[in-house]
Design a protein around this nucleic acid. Structure first.
Length: 716
DNA sequence: CTGTTTACGATTTTT
DNA sequence: TCGTAAACAG
């Protein structure tokens, strides 16, 4: 028997033992949210709930598997067949079992590359934006369309809010969008957004299906609820409609997916949506030492939040977090790796993580780690299944599952000499039109094409296990590898062996296919076993924790990202991102603030401005270390008294460091720079004086600008 | 039309 | 740095 009362705190106990009725759990970072869910799962099983009746929706597949595994350990027995995974994966599995008429026999999931390619194709078909240099990039168009769908707002409003300068292209973008919808319908394709909308539609329209799932899943748990979007919330309501036994878990302070349509309002509205909703707040932090929490609380202090939280820990002792100031982002890498070297004496590799805003920022650190032969694993950035050779191979499989899958067909033909996009589409049409003459001509002209199509046909006739299927495809594809990718085919060949490895864990080819695009199955593979250092984007670090966490590139333009400085809500999301990053740390937190950034254009270094998220931390909450020109690192002397809160420019220690390129700038450390007003941008904070007559000013709502003194009205 | 070269440009985050 | 898009040659 599990002693719930002793092993959980009162709030956790409450959450884990209330099984009936709607419940909202507001779980602060590190407050034992996962633990609570695990105990709740175990409790359900102990109470005799059938695993078949439980639905556990999480943000990643990994998260749900971990929970199920921990619950099993707790119970000392398997938890059985609990349905768990992401909304997207769940949606796909339901759609697969109850295919809407129009998708029977032909249904493929498009990844973002497919979707972009399809959109490009639509744009070209409609001959929109030809030769127009300022026509928005296809990714931009896709971004707008997807945002419009995810936020369920009119494209017009999205453009007005997010990209005013594209207003002139509104009709073009809308037309490309509707062409894209047609394209998908014609070829049995679903993109990520479709999975959710089609599931909602199915559950709404089909009473039988809806009632089946309502009755089947008597208990529903949704993790990371703050990162759900509108349609996901409606799906939850549809599923829980009958009984209302649904628990949403989340933390509004950790909402970091608004950019893809997540709506924090969902978690605020949850109690309204489900009458009689019980609410539990988990506030005690079991993860971090108090000095780290002091710092994270100060980050959050500046943010407006709906659910007040006051994180506290009983681990009072420990070192203050460190702010480390390398001379540049290039020396930052060395400094990071040096730091890791020291931390390794105390912590295991797998308890050390380097976090960053965007995938490319870890580049220099990766080089340095490689140099020293330190092994690491990188999360975020490119996915395994994005690799061209993997997509090549999978396109055979996709085509055999869905003969209409045009993106897959294009991939396949692109590797045939002499066949480009135009020929490819003609051949595709010939196969569809069953025009034997045309097709025959093409087959004669391109012998490779015949081999490819024969292979797909023969695979379709057989009923093979995923591994066998892949072996056949690889036997056919591997010889091509050398000619297609002459420079690095050995590496790719190795990658394909890994693909076979992954496939061996599946008996259902469709599941294998969808997991590859909806979850990253490689993450499971090397799992914990190896003692690897982690490099990760902050987004991919969600829900994880390490003893030691180093965050790099904490300067304006990088973090917050330059794209997010314009609008207040995006800026706040960056702040929450910073909060998420810092709360990953248990014992050590290091913030790296390079003094200058390598400038691609000029080849020199440009001075960098410390991130506002660091500037705004009271100096008493951290220690500061600065790299000297000699390469040594010394602690910055600082006043013993706490500097007044939120007046960072008075703290000389946090001023931007002198530029490495000479006396181009004056330091802010005089503390004289205050605020100023600009005719158009309004009032802003002066960040830096650029002699003789320019200033760098941060205007709320407009971001950083460099302005001539003549246009500014100074305050004293 | 395809394939290659060159120039340019631009860089979030993920299912 | 990388990757993509326009320009050009076959």
């Amino acid at each position: 028997m599990i002693d719930y009362k002793n092993e959980l705190n009162p709030a956790q106990y409450d959450a884990a033992t209330t099984l009936e009725g709607p419940m909202l759990v507001i779980a602060g970072a590190g407050s034992g949210k996962t633990r609570t869910l695990v105990y709740r799962l175990a409790n359900m099983i102990e109470q005799g709930v059938s695993p078949h009746e439980i639905l556990l929706l999480t943000f990643t597949r990994k998260a749900s598997q971990e929970m199920l595994q921990r619950a099993a350990e707790l119970l000392g027995q398997s938890v059985g067949n609990i349905t768990g995974g992401t909304f997207h994966a769940f949606a796909y599995s339901v759609l697969r079992q109850n295919p809407p008429a129009e998708y029977e026999g032909s249904l493929s999931i498009m990844d973002s590359a497919d979707a972009n390619g399809a959109l490009k194709y639509c744009k070209d078909t409609l001959a929109i934006g030809k030769g127009d240099k300022s026509f928005p990039k296809i990714q931009t168009v896709m971004g707008m369309l997807s945002k419009s769908r995810n936020k369920e707002m009119d494209l017009h409003d999205i453009l007005r809010r997010e990209a005013f300068h594209l207003a002139a292209y509104r009709d073009d973008i809308a037309n490309i969008g509707s062409e894209y919808e047609q394209y998908k319908a014609q070829h049995g394709l679903l993109d990520y957004d479709d999975l959710l909308f089609k599931l909602e539609q199915l559950l709404t329209v089909n009473k039988e299906v809806r009632e089946y799932y309502q009755q089947r899943f008597k208990y529903i748990m949704v993790d990371e609820y703050q990162d759900t979007n509108l349609v996901q919330a409606r799906i939850v309501r549809l599923l829980a409609g009958g009984h209302g036994n649904v628990m949403a878990v989340g933390d509004d302070a950790q909402s970091i997916y608004a950019f893809r349509g997540a709506n924090v309002q969902n978690i605020l509205d949850f109690p309204k949506l489900f009458a009689g909703c019980k609410m539990v707040k988990l506030e005690e932090n079991y993860r971090s030492i108090q000095p780290i929490l002091d710092l994270t609380n100060s980050i959050l202090a500046e943010a407006p939040q709906a659910f007040q939280k006051n994180l506290f820990s009983n681990k009072k002792d420990g070192r203050k977090p460190e702010v480390l100031i390398p001379l540049s982002d290039l020396t930052q890498a060395k400094m990071v790796v040096d730091k890791i070297g020291k931390l390794r004496k105390k912590y295991k590799n797998k308890e050390i993580a380097v976090l960053f805003r965007a995938g490319y920022q870890s580049y220099h650190v990766e080089m340095q780690l490689n140099k020293l032969g330190l092994k690491f694993r990188k999360y975020g950035g490119l996915k395994y299944s994005d690799a061209a050779h993997v997509k090549d191979v999978m396109s055979y499989v996709r085509l055999l599952m869905n003969p209409l899958d045009l993106p897959a067909f294009h991939r396949l033909t692109a590797n045939i000499k002499g066949v480009g996009p135009k020929t490819s589409i003609r051949i595709y049409e010939a196969t569809q039109a069953e025009d034997p003459n045309k097709l025959k001509k093409a087959l004669v002209r391109y012998p490779e094409l015949r081999e490819d199509l024969d292979l797909v046909d023969s695979l379709r006739r057989q009923r093979l296990e995923p591994v066998e299927l892949l072996e056949e495809v690889l036997a056919h594809y591997k010889p091509k590898l050398k000619t297609i990718y002459p420079d690095d085919y050995p590496r790719r060949e190795h990658g394909l062996e890994q693909l076979v490895q992954i496939a061996s864990g599946y008996s259902d080819i469709e599941l294998f296919l969808s997991d590859l695009s909806l979850e990253d199955p490689t993450q499971r593979q090397e799992e914990e076993e190896q003692d690897l250092i982690t490099l990760s984007t902050i987004h991919s670090a969600k829900g994880l924790e390490w003893d030691a966490v180093l965050i790099i590139d904490l300067v304006e333009d990088r973090f917050p990202s330059r794209h997010a400085v314009q609008k207040a809500d995006e800026f706040e999301e960056e702040r929450r991102l910073m909060y998420v990053a810092c709360t990953r740390a248990r014992k050590y937190l290091g913030l790296f603030v390079p003094s200058s950034l390598y400038a691609r254009g000029t080849g020199g270094n440009e001075p960098a401005i410390p991130s506002p998220f660091v500037r705004d931390i009271p100096g008493s909450l951290y220690e500061e270390w600065r790299e000297n020109y000699s390469g040594t690192v010394t602690q910055t002397a600082r006043p013993t008294s706490t500097p007044p809160h939120r007046t960072p420019q008075k703290n000389g220690a946090k001023a931007p460091a002198p530029s490495t390129s000479g006396a181009a700038t004056s330091s802010v450390s005089g503390g004289k720079l205050g605020h100023c007003t600009h005719k158009i941008f309004g009032r802003g904070k002066i960040i830096q004086h650029l002699p003789p007559d320019k200033y760098r000013v941060n205007f709320p709502g407009f971001g950083l600008k460099v302005i001539m003194e003549a246009y500014l009205v100074m305050e004293d």
